[in-house]
Design a protein around this nucleic acid. Structure first.
Lengths: 215, 215
DNA sequence: TGGCTTTCGCTACGAGCCGTAGCGTAACTG
DNA sequence: CAGTTACGCTACGGCTCGTAGCGAAAGCCA
């Protein structure tokens, strides 16, 4: 847990003034927890604001004081789960890749994570604001894992240094999309498990390319 | 257009008997077309059965005679779009990969495709039957592109032959998840364009591995 | 041709959810 | 204490869902 910056930044910020009764932090936590629980049981389309309110032991109006709609609520409810991702130094580039792949797969193995992630992505295809929210809350944060992994590999001499910062950024984006995309596709579209053996074979492909598959 | 086997296999099959008024083929086409149009304008969550019926010039009850719910309808409406994917021989493994990546990116560039694909995937995380429907209608069909591409590359001497059929199948699945996953993630999650330059760099990474990125 | 079967468009309906308004009460500030 | 804001609760109009029932249309078969 490094970041922790998931402060209570609602879409609907409380009035700038400082007086009056403050919003209940317990209600915040209860609502987000109830949202995750409801996602697990009901899935994306059958999740209702009324059900979340009931589970959280909170009035429905309290939800609407904080979030304007279902999409905003679910993004916030799930974003904190991604904060758990870490990248401890496992000694080699391949070991680092394998480790983060398995870690990400565990995260996507949780029903609320995969349901919510795909749901908000689907909505974001017709909602520009939501797209930006996903990018800042999830995508940009996770890229740090790639940056860190490359930096270590370069220090070990496993990868060449990249002088042009723009090219380095492009490579970071590319690697991120390949790693995250493969795990997401394997887990959610192909609906096959990401186990240690798959992680090992994927890492070999990523590090050495197609010709390495039968080696 | 090779397959074409997207015959009118409704979830709700007409009564096995052969007598009586047949279902209107024009209505079928109009409904599926209206579904795609509605996806573009309204997105996944705001698409309603009544709206689709109105657009198609058809009674709402006619929809429910064919499809039990929104998920089934959308899967069928979008599945045919994937039939357009081809894999012409472009002379080399790299060229074949680049070609199919750009082709797949074009497909995902259509609003109805990305909205529908992510929407049904999200629903499939809590719907086993829908998951199977996606696998058979989309995943398994597209894998043929990978099989064909590998076969050609082996014939050219670009890739070694694989004796063990089980290992070959595992490699096919792996490559499929990496290619499709990267394109989907780049397009929908990172929300960045898949252009010719990205396709070229992705192909280099896939064929030769991480160390090739700065070459 | 007539009889049988199934689909069609149409209308109507109960049920459920959405998002908001209004009220009295609770909590915190100066 | 007065002022301000959040809270729980109730109620509401509006929309969508999925189904039922009707008469008419469109096929098949004797």
């Amino acid at each position: 847990m490094v970041a922790g910056m998931s402060s209570s930044t609602y879409p609907k910020a409380p009035r700038a003034g400082r007086t009056g009764r403050p919003r209940s932090a317990e209600a915040d936590a209860a609502i987000l927890e109830a949202t995750r629980a409801s996602l697990v049981e009901l899935g994306w389309s059958k999740l209702t604001m009324g059900d979340v309110a009931t589970r959280a032991g909170v009035a429905k109006t309290t939800l609407y004081r904080r979030w304007a709609n279902k999409n905003e609520l679910v993004v916030d409810a799930v974003a904190v789960l991604f904060d758990e991702l870490e990248l401890p130094d496992r000694g080699s580039l391949a070991a680092d890749v394998e480790g983060v792949v398995l870690q990400f797969a565990d995260l996507l193995g949780q029903p609320e994570t995969k349901t919510a992630l795909m749901g908000v992505v689907a909505e974001s295809t017709t909602d520009e604001a939501l797209r930006g929210r996903i990018r800042s809350a999830i995508v940009e944060r996770q890229k740090r894992l790639v940056v860190e992994g490359r930096r270590r590999a370069q220090a070990r001499g496993e990868l060449p240094y990249e002088d042009d910062p723009r090219a380095a950024a492009r490579n970071t984006d590319l690697i991120f999309d390949v790693v995250a995309g493969a795990v997401v596709h394997r887990t959610l579209v192909s609906a096959e498990p990401v186990d240690a053996e798959w992680a090992r074979r994927f890492t070999a492909l990523l590090v050495s390319g197609l010709s390495s598959l039968t080696a």
